[in-house]
Design a protein around this nucleic acid. Sequence first.
DNA 1: AACCCTCCCAACCGCACGCCA
DNA 2: TTGGCGTGCGGTTGGGAGGGT
Length: 326
Amino acid sequence: MACDQRGMRGEETAAGEEEMLRRGPWTVEEDVLLANYIAANGEGRWNALARRAGLKRTGKSCRLRWLNYLRPDLRRGGMTAEEQLLVLELHARWGNRWSKIAQHLPGRTDNEIKNYWRTRVQRHAKQLRCDVGSQRFRDLVRGLWIPRLLERIHAANSSGEGDVIAQATAAALPVAADGRCWAVDDVFDLGPGAAAADVELSCTTALSSSSSVSTDGCGVQPLPPPAPMVATAESAHGSVVSSAAMHDTALWQPPQTHGGLMMTQEQQHHQRAESQLLGAETWWSDQTSLHAGLYTDVGFPELEFGGETMWGACADDLWCTDMLGL
DNA sequence: AACCCTCCCAACCGCACGCCA
DNA sequence: TTGGCGTGCGGTTGGGAGGGT
């Protein structure tokens, strides 16, 4: 793309009569010069490298070009669901530590992740009228976006459960001994010999300050299974325009009581959703609902909403923008 | 066709830090 | 200790692409 922009801003700097340094988009010739030089001599010492390679660029510019564009191990194309999931979770954990986040996404640069965050994630937050740093947005990410990503990952790997776990592992999502997959947590700090049991013991949820320490002393609760919840969203005008229950009857049948009375399914859904959105410590994670795999049994029924499906047809639109009327 | 607007992303900027003489 | 240099990081900018009117 940068090459397509060639010449648009490629003016020489005024500074330096004897050595005119170029700025702006890189030309193919410059790319070849830089790539060939690094292939022959390696990278580093960027200022000297720029001079020796015959490039009229600052070392800084050369380094940036190499790391963000020319490096052979770079991945191209849009972020996969796994990568988006990782970005969301790692950002919740580390904030704008783009380079640190990028270390866990092979082939992706900090610049790319930063751009992804600013263009996609912040746009969604803006549409939802909340700040990306707000608890409300974190809850929406946890309750809507991440489950949707997990669903997509599952769908893509539905050919075999082993693949699912392998995928989660490859994506640095810790998988516990029973196959449950946890939110990104301190597994990165466990060291190479950490067993699945250790993973479970160290689980912390990175996504919400509302995460709670479990009573059994096994660390902080993982993400709740995403299936049943009520998505309540505000329209652009600030009024609640809709709420819809997503449920998986195969998973979410345990009867709930409220004041000694059996709760209707709708009441249960509502209570669960409130708990999630308000960061309550009720996780609805009774043993019957804890299941093997990467939330593998989660299969949202296609939710009808005013003739539109809950999730937009656009593969990249993970928010229910149709429903929101945004 | 022309204009406008938004999205996307490569590239730049300023700053901080580490190393070394 | 200090100053210069190289490097890395996060924030910002600006222009192409594409869609809508």
